[in-house]
Design a protein around this nucleic acid. Sequence first.
DNA 1: TCAGGTCGTTTAATCGTGTAAATAGATAAG
DNA 2: CTTATCTATTTACACGATTAAACGACCTGA
Lengths: 327, 327
Amino acid sequence: MTRGRSPTIKDVAKVAGVSSATVSYVLNDLNKVTPEVDALVRRVAKELGYSRNNAARALKTGRNNIIGCILPTLTSPVFPEIAQAVQLRAEAHGYATLVIDSGNAPMREEKVVRTLAKHGVDGAVALLHPKFKLADPPIFPIVSLDAKFPGLDSVHADHYAGGRLMAEHAMALGHRRIGMLSGFQDLTSSYERRQGFVDAAAGRVELVWEVNVHLVPQLPPAAVEAIRRREVTMIACVNDLVAIAALSVLKDSGMSAPGDVSVFGFDDMQWASWPLIDLTTIRQPLAELGSRAADLLISRLDDRQRPVEDLVLPVTLVERGSTARVG
Amino acid sequence: MTRGRSPTIKDVAKVAGVSSATVSYVLNDLNKVTPEVDALVRRVAKELGYSRNNAARALKTGRNNIIGCILPTLTSPVFPEIAQAVQLRAEAHGYATLVIDSGNAPMREEKVVRTLAKHGVDGAVALLHPKFKLADPPIFPIVSLDAKFPGLDSVHADHYAGGRLMAEHAMALGHRRIGMLSGFQDLTSSYERRQGFVDAAAGRVELVWEVNVHLVPQLPPAAVEAIRRREVTMIACVNDLVAIAALSVLKDSGMSAPGDVSVFGFDDMQWASWPLIDLTTIRQPLAELGSRAADLLISRLDDRQRPVEDLVLPVTLVERGSTARVG
DNA sequence: TCAGGTCGTTTAATCGTGTAAATAGATAAG
DNA sequence: CTTATCTATTTACACGATTAAACGACCTGA
């Protein structure tokens, strides 16, 4: 057992009786060496338990084989699902993933990017606020999650189509009077979801009330009051978290879904399927979102000149117990 | 604007008219230089937008300023809360955090450790299965989360006391016939929770039935049947996720909590407080768990000889709507 | 005045890889 | 047999930082 530090490329070279360059060539799969030498070097490397020093490699090549994954928060059910997928795919490509939350603040996003840069990530997958100003020149390539972003590769669900799906399903169930808990419209995905809904519903359903809410499971007083007025047969929510908040308010007010009012979510996060919640929703393929973003980022790292790509993934309706045919 | 690569320590040195060593001394806060030179160097560094190349530093010093955070999964409400705290604290110490999930399998845990080693983490915070075999000699320092682990620093809640609290509260509410959804006993925390409960309840409540379950929100048939037999006034669960599964079964079976039976969780994960769930539970300080673990790890990185430390954090009872005085 | 001590700064070696360029050895061509 | 052409391998330097050791300037006390 080699006491002290772990073996270096030179140790391997010495034991194998070749030069360190040869070892490097072998271990990087540039096939520049005889099969015998190749086999020998690999055997010795394995025997010594050699493992490449990433810092040295990074120093020499300028690539760290680490990517970042910037999300607004981890304490929400949707984002970890994405993070997990990013990580898994990155690992398959030999990259580690630095998951980091931006705390939802656009100012912090810029700080987070700098932090990641300091730690030498090669690029990042990020869910960015549209107001985010990307540095010029960009510090590292970024793939935008959840929304298009000018100048960046992006991967996102078809929010607009999702909004339409919602409206169509609502109408199919006979709902004509609908209340809406929409997200603040500066967030692209919130905007598109609403727009899809409104376009599809135009002239055929009445939007009785609408309240903009933050994407957290607590509702502002205005929303609570609106729900309690009992003027609508369905509440369409910008996402599942908000839908759950709506369900909570219903329960507190002695009402229930879908008996008194139907509730419609968006995302299909894991918990939406729990019997206690049992939420009808629009499913976006969270895991695929993450893995495709990772793919896109890595392909970008390999070719900086490739034209910007925008990947739109389809959404589907998931019908559960929180919605019902009207009256 | 310096076209091309980003400025190095030498660029700063040249512009400031000093040697690169001086710049290094300044930027590392070893106070070896005159105040004037110090100020000058800092100014120049800022002007050039200099940022230290972490790879080079890591190569020279053998420290990467990255720690790992190994958790069974991110798609569970408890773990991201811990991860977030670890990350925050690590960042305060100048470390980045590589969050990585081990997928709950002890075999994968060892692979994950190797992966982290490859990416050069200096140490890790990890929630390990007791069967995990740590390499000898250890590749890097690890702080064990959630349970003591022989030879490692550890931080965990006082599961045993939590179990006792549960039992005492149950008895205070008059419950005498209790069913238990306990975790598999090879997991230390599951074992201790159960043991605390059993010890405190000994002779005073009847454990009518008990089923070992995995820590996920789906129950095995045996558990479902047990619940449906309606033989108990309270179901004590190994954690909140399982408690929610129990609530689901109740709902599916036309029963409800606390009307037909009280349900008791453990963890106080974020969602336990949602009105829809409203779970009485034992709270473990998740965020503190994470930040203390990060502290412990970093102190270990600074002093490898320090004796192993075992930090036990107190738990508290959180009474909500899923439990009631027995009819 | 000079030996010795302090202090601030520089010189130079080093960390472990990657890789362009040099080299040696073998083969082929003329 | 000489020369050119490959090919497998090695030599040697660079990447950007840290840091021990060398250095020079200044001060101090005898």
